[in-house]
Design a protein around this nucleic acid. Structure first.
Lengths: 223, 223
DNA sequence: GTCATCATGTAAGCCGTTACATGATTGC
DNA sequence: GCAATCATGTAACGGCTTACATGATGAC
């Protein structure tokens, strides 16, 4: 999850941890924003694996020092010491990360995972779908579609289960209805996405507005 | 989460762990079913807190032993030893739990928690809403409604953010649309629930079909 | 008599969180 | 100079999962 998010964002732009967290927060509507306590260790782990690398580290002032350059000099010195690798402990200052070739491969690997049962992970994967080859992207959507159909069948089986008809009160019925409607809605959305993907120009031309406005969509069984 | 599920189910019926897990699985559509590894420790914890109590424990054959009663005798002996509390280790056999008065209080407490941000927890709370007084139940729904309205506003603010218009590709737009539609749908469902709650007979009479069919519903702002 | 299912439990580990600790930069 | 924000990290802990270990019951 968090690896996917980090690699996806770093593919688009070099960023440091703090900024990464902000982007993540706005990418996944409020929910799903990770905490620093998991972000920084994850970055360190990915760096150790060679999936990302520290590109730049600014501690000293990038522009001219304002007054007493003593502070700036000291900071620059500390930065140099840190860069030399002598001090590992609490090296502060901005640490900008970029993705490596290995990181790009890892991202595609994560995006290609056949498991599409995790809803939050799927959302993330759609967000980074542009980094997947056309065929793999379509396959991802199709697999998700199969998963949603499976869930719908599960739900219908439960709806028509005679054994529990007695102990299903109104609130349970309401929840069941909500689930069914949500599922149908999600399926319709996915169908639109797949349709757009299929009808898109796959010869390298423009793909700026591939998702059409809500309209009639295909559905194999009755809705 | 798991405490809520256990207490809710045990309020309705005495059950043992294994059965509890099955019920949980069918209650929360496939997703959300807990594993034994968390269920049994949770039961033990709740028992230690006095929220549930072991009602019955059957290890020996309830009916007449079939042939060599030696095995049955041994099992019965072991059951007796276990009941005496001398052996704590691996006491097998069915352990049926029931809820206590304290457990019922705890359930109401969990259902009354002001935090309605957790979607899965809210679903569970609706499932056990009948165990809440009318006023508290309505308050739960209203608080959830406020939370959903907050999320919708968040989403709209993000939709009309000029700063990120550039780096929002088609898939991100599609996700944003999906979120907005899901949210609107959830709100409509909640509004129906609240309306049904308000118009329900709160004088102790029939409440078998309080949730009306989908129809026009109120909404303060434009949809 | 053995296999599937029912039934209970423990241990290790994963993945995330909150709380804590530190320090740099910028605006007033 | 000092507060707010930016920025990075560590430590403790929480809740849940998988894998493991054990045993009972019933069907064939």
């Amino acid at each position: 999850m968090i690896d996917l998010a980090i690699l996806g964002l770093l593919t688009e732009q070099e960023l440091h941890g703090y900024e990464l967290k902000k982007r993540l927060g706005e990418l996944l509507s409020s929910r799903a924003s990770v905490s620093f306590g998991s972000l920084y260790p994850a970055l360190a782990r990915l760096e150790a694996q060679g999936a990302v690398k520290a590109v730049e580290e600014r501690t000293s002032v990038p522009s001219a020092p304002m007054s007493g350059s003593l502070v700036g000099e000291l900071a620059a010195f500390r930065a140099r010491v840190r860069e030399s690798g002598l001090v590992k402990g609490t090296g502060r200052g901005k640490k900008v990360y970029g993705i490596t070739e290995h990181g790009r491969e890892r991202l595609v690997e994560l995006l290609s995972d056949p498991d599409v049962t995790d809803d939050r992970a799927f959302t993330l994967r759609v967000a980074f779908a542009p980094h997947l080859p056309d065929a793999a992207r379509l396959e991802l959507f199709e697999r998700r579609r199969t998963e949603l159909l499976r869930r719908r069948d599960d739900l219908r089986r439960r709806e028509s289960d005679p054994g529990r008809a007695g102990r299903t009160h109104s609130y349970l019925r309401a929840l069941l209805e909500r689930d069914a409607e949500n599922l149908a809605h999600d399926l319709a959305w996915l169908d639109r996405l797949i349709e757009a993907e299929r009808s898109a120009d796959h010869n390298g031309a423009d793909r700026s507005i591939p998702v059409p406005a809500p309209q009639a969509h295909l559905q194999e069984e009755t809705p």
